[in-house]
Amino acid sequence: MNALKIVAVALIIAGGMGLAYGSFSYTKETQQAQIGPVELTVQDRQTVNIPVWAGVAALAAGVLLLLVPKTSA
C-alpha cells in the first residue's frame, strides 16, 4: 500500500468520524497560583466542534484520492 492510499484511507476515516461524532473534548490543566510549596491548578474542559462541511470535505477528498488513477510522469 503506497503513501497516497494511506492518506486517502486516513481522510476517509477522519471524515467519517467527524460526521459521526461532530465534536471532541479534552481537559486542559492550568496553574492558577503558587504560594510556596502549595500549588493551585484548575482543570478546564474544552469542546471543539467539527463543522459538517469539514467532515464531508475530508470524506470526499479521501474517496477522490482512491478513485482517481495515478498519472505517471
Rank of each mutant, 00 (worst) to 15 (best):
63 V>K: 05
12 I>W: 09
20 A>E: 01
20 A>Q: 11
26 Y>N: 02
37 P>Y: 09
11 L>Q: 05
22 G>A: 13
73 A>L: 05
43 Q>D: 14
34 Q>A: 07
48 V>P: 02
40 L>G: 03
45 R>P: 11
66 L>S: 05
41 T>Y: 00
30 T>W: 02
54 A>W: 00
19 L>A: 03
50 I>F: 00
58 A>E: 11
60 A>R: 14
48 V>I: 15
50 I>S: 12
9 V>Y: 13
4 L>V: 14
7 V>Y: 13
65 L>I: 08
10 A>Y: 01
69 P>L: 15
39 E>A: 06
36 G>P: 07
53 W>G: 07
24 F>C: 02
14 A>F: 07
42 V>F: 09
25 S>F: 04
25 S>W: 08
34 Q>P: 04
2 N>T: 01
12 I>G: 05
3 A>W: 07
54 A>E: 09
57 A>Y: 00
63 V>R: 00
9 V>R: 02
69 P>G: 15
9 V>D: 08
69 P>T: 10
45 R>E: 15
19 L>F: 02
5 K>Y: 00
64 L>A: 15
67 L>V: 14
50 I>C: 01
45 R>M: 09
11 L>S: 03
42 V>G: 03
66 L>F: 06
59 L>V: 05
31 Q>S: 08
50 I>N: 03
41 T>G: 03
50 I>V: 12
12 I>K: 05
10 A>W: 02
71 T>E: 14
61 A>M: 06
61 A>G: 08
35 I>K: 10
43 Q>Y: 08
54 A>V: 14
67 L>D: 11
27 T>A: 11
51 P>L: 04
24 F>Y: 06
42 V>E: 13
51 P>Q: 03
6 I>C: 04
70 K>D: 04
37 P>N: 05
21 Y>W: 11
1 M>S: 08
20 A>G: 05
49 N>F: 13
24 F>T: 07
64 L>C: 14
12 I>N: 00
8 A>T: 02
53 W>S: 11
41 T>S: 07
43 Q>N: 15
59 L>Y: 03
34 Q>D: 12
6 I>R: 14
64 L>V: 15
29 E>S: 15
58 A>P: 01
15 G>A: 01
41 T>P: 03
50 I>G: 10
8 A>L: 04
46 Q>A: 07
41 T>W: 05
64 L>N: 02
30 T>E: 09
21 Y>N: 11
6 I>P: 08
50 I>R: 02
19 L>E: 07
44 D>M: 07
37 P>I: 00
38 V>T: 04
61 A>N: 02
51 P>D: 07
55 G>W: 01
63 V>D: 06
65 L>F: 09
55 G>D: 04
50 I>D: 08
21 Y>F: 12
30 T>P: 01
33 A>L: 12
4 L>D: 10
73 A>C: 10
41 T>V: 09
60 A>S: 15
40 L>R: 00
13 I>G: 09
26 Y>E: 00
58 A>L: 04
19 L>Y: 03
25 S>K: 07
33 A>Q: 04
64 L>P: 05
1 M>R: 11
4 L>W: 06
21 Y>D: 03
25 S>M: 02
66 L>K: 01
23 S>N: 08
27 T>K: 12
39 E>R: 13
30 T>C: 00
34 Q>V: 11
35 I>F: 09
47 T>L: 00
67 L>E: 06
69 P>F: 13
70 K>E: 14
